[in-house]
Design a protein around this nucleic acid. Structure first.
Lengths: 190, 190
DNA sequence: ACTTTTGTTAACAAAATTGTTAAACATCAA
DNA sequence: TTGATGTTTAACAATTTTGTTAACAAAAGT
């Protein structure tokens, strides 16, 4: 892999996977096995590296939604696929959303970039239709989306804390998370 | 308020409420309106201030659980009270758990401190009983707890990101969150 | 009153982190 | 082979952040 890409991937691994949001350029360089100056060579500054990673994270998040949510398959099946895809990504990058949140909070993002996801908007419409049909309990489709993402993401994000509070082993916790894909699908269609 | 307490409260406000997890001692001091040296006077080092805040966050989290989950009231009512209490706290300190997670991840916590929550254990038993009775759908009580906390916390934690992705105004989002207390209770008892 | 303790501050020192530069190195086309 | 280009590195400089000190102020105790 070329080193520019390597640096980016390593940064993502530290941020999204290890949850190490405070990483210094030196720590990133060490983890990548490259000279720290290369970070400046390729990204000019630490801040620009962070911005790049941030942007790509939002992009990949949105393109993931796009990939699945536009599929022309029956709703229930689409949901099944979606949960599958999204949770796989969650296990790979549990802290991606957490990173985004901290970035948004730390820079006082007066970002004009339009981040709105068209796929999500489309998905919301589809949910509304299902509610009309009676397949789903009626209500604001946004709450349905909230519920869906919450049920998938939160236990993953909270792993280190809940392991402590519930006194569960790493393996047991992992097994519990694995069970959830099916459970969520059931719960969603109560 | 004495300044030691003021510093701590300000740090908590920055971390838990503003989501500003990178705060420097200078920024904390400025926000508190005190001289930065006072932080060293009262807490010796930045790291010890963080540790103190961390510990107190875990303690308050656990004592909150204790306060509500041991109550001797019917299960459904207890849950209603719990959701009420917990979501009120969530709105005050949306990023408390996020702070805990980043701290756990950044220090390689070889913490021997037992963090296990007895209240949660007790709550799990109660849930199991309700499942026996048929009041709740059967399953691993832990998943019930996962679901409960996920539904409450996640949309709150993700506020800045979801506002962007869904293109919702601050006020509208706030209103949506406010609606959830009731919705969660209904959903839980499907 | 004055002595001791506690709180507060600015100035300084030390450490950590980031950014820059110039030279070494590699690759490859002319 | 040369030289043009892009890559990599170490050494250095600048900046930011943290920690320490000593002086001063306020409060409390005697």
């Amino acid at each position: 892999m070329n080193k520019e890409e390597l640096i980016k991937q390593t940064a993502k691994d530290l941020f999204f996977n290890k949850g190490y949001l405070h990483a210094t350029t030196q720590e990133i360089a060490d983890a990548a096995g490259v000279n720290r100056s290369l970070i400046n060579y390729y990204f000019r500054s630490r801040d620009l590296l962070f911005q790049t990673v941030y942007r790509e994270a939002v992009e990949s998040l949105k393109s993931q939604l796009d990939k699945v949510l536009y599929d022309n398959v029956p709703f229930k099946e689409k949901l099944s696929i979606f949960i599958d895809v999204y949770m796989k990504e969650l296990l790979k990058y549990p802290y991606r959303e957490s990173f985004l949140i901290t970035e948004i909070c730390s820079k006082n993002f007066a970002l004009k970039e339009k981040k709105k996801s068209a796929a999500l908007a489309h998905f919301l419409k589809e949910i509304a239709e299902e509610m009309e049909k009676g397949t789903l309990k009626k209500g604001d489709p946004i709450h349905f989306v909230f519920d869906l993402f919450a049920l998938m993401s939160f236990p993953v994000i909270m792993t280190p804390l809940y392991q402590k509070l519930l006194d569960i082993s790493k393996e047991k916790y992992k097994a519990l998370i694995a069970e959830r894909k099916q459970l969520i699908l059931e719960k969603i269609f109560n």
